[in-house]
């Protein structure tokens, strides 16, 4: 525990480059969210609303109204249940691996035991909150904004853990390695 700052150059390099690359991945992740989801609770609620909810009962008879075919070309990205299932099964394991790698680096930093526990817990709780929010918004659209807020909070929590980890790693591994004792 806490020996990463005194590790050989290549070990510190690997940990730092991993975190920087994760940062780059986050930039594209944010772009993706902006394109196809939302950073706001109401936007998440709308994007993940179940197609069977939010609609009134089908009319007794079929109805026809004029439409401009060009209006159909406007992309309306909506996440159906099958896509949410598929993405949960892909993203949650990746999230778990990211949290596990974050935890490994955390174990190498000079931190109090309590701080390590809080950060490890936050790293694993964030994806749970994120996907709980997405599924909540999908299953219970009447409280979609609340679930959207849970999802956004989960995403930002993971970002916060990443930020803390990156700052501590850069500081301890490269800028203040000399003369500091272990916590």
């Amino acid at each position: 525990m806490g020996k990463l700052p005194e590790s050989p150059f290549e070990v510190r390099l690997a940990a730092t480059l991993f975190l920087l690359l994760m940062g780059l991945a986050n930039v594209f992740g944010a772009w993706q969210v902006r394109n196809f989801a939302s950073f706001t609770p109401s936007g998440v609620a709308e994007a993940f609303r179940s197609e069977h909810e939010g609609h009134s009962m089908p009319a007794a008879v079929s109805e026809e109204k004029p439409v401009d075919p060009a209006s159909l070309n406007v992309e309306q990205h909506h996440t159906g249940r099958e896509l949410l299932v598929q993405d949960s099964h892909v993203h949650i394991p990746v999230y778990a691996m990211a949290a596990a790698f974050f935890a490994l680096i955390l174990f190498g930093l000079r931190l109090s035991r309590r701080t390590r526990i809080v950060l490890v817990f936050a790293a694993f709780a964030a994806p749970v909150l994120d996907f709980a929010g997405l599924w909540g918004a999908h299953l219970w659209s009447e409280s979609g904004r609340l679930w959207g807020a849970v999802a956004v909070f989960g995403g930002f929590l993971m970002g916060l853990v990443y930020l803390i980890l990156l700052v501590l790693t850069l500081k301890q591994c490269w800028f203040s390695r000399q003369g500091e004792g272990h916590a």
Binding site: A30, A37, L83, G155, Y162
Partner: peptide, 15 residues
């Protein structure tokens, strides 16, 4: 800049 990175994490669904 780092905080900007931090805010970018949120689950998205593959388009």
């Amino acid at each position: 800049a780092l905080f900007g990175f931090a805010l970018t994490l949120d689950a998205h669904v593959t388009p």
